[in-house]
Design a binder for these strands. Structure first.
Length: 735
RNA sequence: GCGCGUAUAGCUCAGUGGUUAGAGCGUCCGUUUCACAUGCGGAAGGUCGUUGGUUCAAAUCCAACUACGCGCACCA
């Protein structure tokens, strides 16, 4: 019998065991000796290759590894496929911060010769370094994923599939380029999707500005606006068609109160009517600045107003069309505009006004709505080859239960978002990403989708042979949205045939729209199937004060530091127990320490059993007492219960039951009761049998949650028909 | 504006109609002898937000209310 330390020391165990598991090849389903040939697969949400792992990642790994290890023990051919995400915009933002610290910027590098290529290479190297580090962290957590199948979102095989999807959607009429108002971040110099902006409440002012009639300078129409600096870009005043107040103004002209002698345009502004205008807001009259507001742009389009008269540039400064405001930043321009309006008497009054302003979700810079040509995906239109829109496909998949949310509440949230979805802007003006495979003919200007290497030889429209390449790249979610089938080598790969649709998608609820919804749409559109059967959404980890963990708040628990202190098993268990799916778990070091104590309990109870097995013969038939039988019956019932919980994704309940049982039934009662029997010659063998049976069964059921310590002890106990690893043992069903 | 959710011990949370409502941490008392002081024995601590309903039975199902949290949204 080996001499065991008095306290469990995870440092002696974890690395050694992981190496053995990995070398065994059993992480790979093809090498797994399984009775039951049924496949079971999970695609790991690929962490962003732009930093180290945080507790949220540890939670993902803990839950998914628990599921995978459980299913593996149930005899499934289990595949858990790891990967990493280039994470376009997110990574570029992180990298730019790094550049800033080094005293330079993305724009400086882009100025250099081949700057674009150079910057791309720099970020590439950065992500590859991070990726290696992340892999090590995932291994430390004990993740039994198949590293031989690992993928990166910029692998050529992935890009190929992403391009083919783009081409298919383009040919299907779902992809189009349009000039319209986009969410522009002046700091990051890119457009953002509707999901990438946040809304902040601001206490601003509402300015009431008079626009005098051209023909009758005594009469005027008052407009309420929060953005007087955009007045130089006004091309109409719009009122509701049924608004009696302004009936006589419709069709007349007013004079722009802020600018005169506009380039190429009159200073006269027509009063028009449009049902989009709210009769009851402000004065009921709306100034129309097509290039600087989404609603105005829509109205402008309908009424044939100039849409590209942009008076704010891409840096958020007033340009030379802004008259006296030229050169000022937007906020400065606002003050200046008010000054001028006040002087000319055009300012009627100012009111306090609280409203929502959109900001960049990364840098909090106020979003500038600006017109720009962008690539979009139609969400509500039918493709040429089918009769259901992406929106309809996704809604139908959930309605028909092809995909099921483990927490029902997210189903409702999903529907709500889906019902109101608008077209998706997939172009980003950044360099870190997959280029949109489009060329514009230099001659006829038409766009050509070209997804092979190199560039098109001849323009199919005019036979010209010179092209300009699109410089925009895809929104990162356009590629990660295709992750489940792309990683499995769609459409002809063996893995795709064996493992698609995958079984569970487990990820944080914060990316339900960004990622999960898009995966469902892409999966349904491309493969006609949902990419997964169940969606398990976990919460966002908070600290003791309910705060989201972030570096700036200095409340981050570093998973690696915690693992070094208390072990991966303790961390994993504390992430699982009491954490119902979908709720935001609160994790403190005290909780983790508490479950570290549990690992020690397991260690010592096992140590006690092992200390008393030197003469144990696993072939003798035990003489079980009534009480012994009762104990085994209870254990059987526990397993039944726990198995049911595991099948229903109730890991938080299963883990707690196992904890209760091991500590307060096995250690407190069963071991105590049998201490005396072990001293009794007649009863010793039976007591040994009972103890080792309960211990072995407990180890098996605890293994998915605490893989390291259970494996370590399993390797030491003398039981019948032992497998090479506990990892590939059978989940206990009969005792 | 539209929608979703939460309220259980001092704190943070589990609890899938059925004994005496649980866990981690914390508090108090006792305890180092042969598995474990990262332990053991014991104790204090709960009108399960409020009110009403359904039921033989409600923390659990339903409704309203109160408080809090969150998501979505082109009201200038």
């Amino acid at each position: 019998m080996p001499e065991l330390d008095k306290n469990y020391n995870h440092l002696n165990v974890e690395q050694k065991r992981y190496k053995q598991w990995e070398e065994s090849g059993f992480f790979n389903p093809d090498k797994l000796p399984t009775k039951n040939k049924k496949p079971f697969s999970i695609i790991m949400p690929p962490p962003n290759a732009n930093g180290s792992l945080h507790l949220g990642h540890a939670l993902t790994i803990a839950i998914e590894d628990t599921i995978i290890r459980y299913k593996r023990m149930r005899g499934y051919k289990t595949l858990w496929l790891p990967g990493a995400d280039h994470a376009g915009f997110e990574t570029q933002v992180v990298f730019e911060k790094k550049l800033e610290k080094e005293g330079t910027s993305r724009f400086e590098i882009l100025k250099e010769k081949n700057g674009r290529e150079k910057l791309y290479q720099m970020i590439w190297d950065f992500t590859q370094k991070n990726k290696l580090q992340m892999e090590e962290q995932i291994k430390k957590l004990g993740a039994s994923c198949d590293w031989s199948r690992e993928k990166f979102t910029l692998d050529p095989s992935i890009i190929k599939i992403v391009y083919e999807t783009f081409k298919k959607m383009y040919d299907d009429g779902l992809i189009y380029r349009d000039y319209r108002i986009v969410n522009w971040c002046p700091k990051h110099q890119t457009a953002l999707s509707d999901l990438e902006i946040n809304w902040e409440e601001r206490n601003d002012k509402l300015y009431y500005v008079k626009y005098y009639l051209e023909n009758d300078p005594k009469k005027f129409i008052t407009v309420a606006t929060t953005r007087p600096e955009t007045i130089p870009g006004d091309f109409a005043i719009a009122v509701h068609p049924q608004n009696k107040l302004y009936k006589n103004f419709i069709g007349q002209f007013v004079i722009n109160p802020l600018i005169h002698n506009r380039k190429n345009y009159d200073d006269k502004i027509k009063v028009i009517s449009d049902p989009l205008v709210d009769k009851d807001f402000g004065t009921g009259a709306l100034k129309i600045t097509p290039a600087h507001d989404a609603v105005d742009f829509e109205i402008g389009k309908k009424h044939n107003l100039p849409l590209d008269y942009q008076i704010i540039d891409w840096n958020g400064k007033m340009n030379n069309l802004a008259g006296e405001l030229e050169g000022l930043k937007v906020m400065e321009a606002r003050e200046k505009a008010i000054e001028i309006l006040q002087k000319t008497g055009a300012l009627e009054k100012i009111e306090d006004y609280t409203h929502q302003v959109s900001v960049c979700y990364k840098c909090k810079t106020t979003i500038e709505p600006l017109p720009r040509a962008q690539w979009f995906i139609k969400m509500t239109a039918k493709p040429k080859s089918g009769n259901k829109s992406l929106k309809d496909l996704a809604i139908e998949a959930v309605k028909t239960k092809k995909v099921v949310f483990v927490s029902k509440k997210f189903e409702k949230v999903f529907y709500h978002w889906m019902e109101n979805i608008r077209d998706w802007n997939i172009s980003r003006q950044i360099i870190w990403g997959i280029p949109i495979p489009i060329y514009y003919c230099e001659n006829c200007g038409k766009e050509i989708v070209y997804i092979k290497n190199g560039q098109p030889k001849k323009c199919p429209h005019c036979n010209h042979s010179k092209f300009i390449k699109e410089t925009d790249v895809f929104d990162t979610w356009f590629s990660s949205g295709q992750w489940p089938y792309a990683t499995l080598n769609y459409p002809n790969g063996k893995d795709f045939k064996n493992f698609y649709p995958t079984d569970v998608m487990e990820t944080g609820w914060d990316i339900l729209f960004f990622w999960v919804a898009r995966m469902i749409m892409f999966g349904m559109y491309n493969t006609k199937k949902t990419p997964f059967k169940y969606i398990y959404l976990h919460g966002l980890i908070r600290d003791k004060d309910r705060q989201k963990m972030s570096k700036s708040k200095n409340n981050v628990i570093d998973p690696l530091g915690i693992i070094d202190l208390y072990g991966a098993d303790a961390l994993r268990f504390s992430l699982i127990v009491g954490n119902a799916p979908g709720n935001d778990p609160i994790i403190s070091e005290e909780k983790i320490r508490g479950y570290r104590n549990f690992t020690n309990k397991i260690w010592n109870a096992s140590r006690f059993v092992l200390m008393n097995l030197n003469d144990f013969d696993n072939k003798t038939t035990p003489l079980l007492s009534k009480n012994d039988k009762e104990i085994l019956k209870d254990l059987k019932n526990l397993i039944k219960d726990v198995t049911k919980d595991m099948d229903n994704f109730n890991f938080h309940i299963a883990s707690e039951k196992l904890y209760q049982y091991f500590w307060h039934v096995f250690a407190d009662k069963i071991i105590e009761q049998n201490k005396e029997r072990l001293q009794n010659k007649k009863e010793r063998a039976t007591a040994q049998y009972l103890l080792i049976t309960v211990l072995e069964t407990s180890l098996k059921t605890l293994h998915p949650f605490m893989p390291y310590i259970t494996e370590e002890i399993y390797q030491m106990i003398p039981t019948k028909n032992k497998k090479k690893f506990l990892m590939i043992e059978d989940w206990p069903q009969k005792i």
